[in-house]
Amino acid sequence: MIRVPEIWIAANVGVPIMPRNLDAQLQSAVIHSLSNLLKERITFKNGAVQQSNFYDYQVIRMSEAPEVHTHIVPSSRNPVGIGDLGGIGVGPAVANAFFSATGRRLRQSPFLPERVLAALKT
């Protein structure tokens, strides 16, 4: 399985109105996206979702949560809402890191252990 101990992220949202909240929102989006990317999978059977709770829909927990290093790019432009900006780059970053390390491509998220293993065997 893939483990991500640390993530670095930079954001330019114009003048940072609430820098600490910005920082929190970036960390939050990164970790939520990493959870989506590595763990969260919904499957359907006869038109119904098969997962029903956290025992069969695993999400990221403390032991798997990376340290998130944020950098706010200084800017004097008009401020914009941060939204979930932090999540966008996580998938490509992890996929490319995996490619750098192994020479193999992961093309379908979530990157579950069995998919990682299958990619390594190709």
Partner: peptide
């Protein structure tokens, strides 16, 4: 703490 989920990702 691994028995406590935080969907917002406030873990750090």
């Amino acid at each position: 703490m691994s028995g406590n989920i935080c969907r917002c990702g406030t873990y750090p």
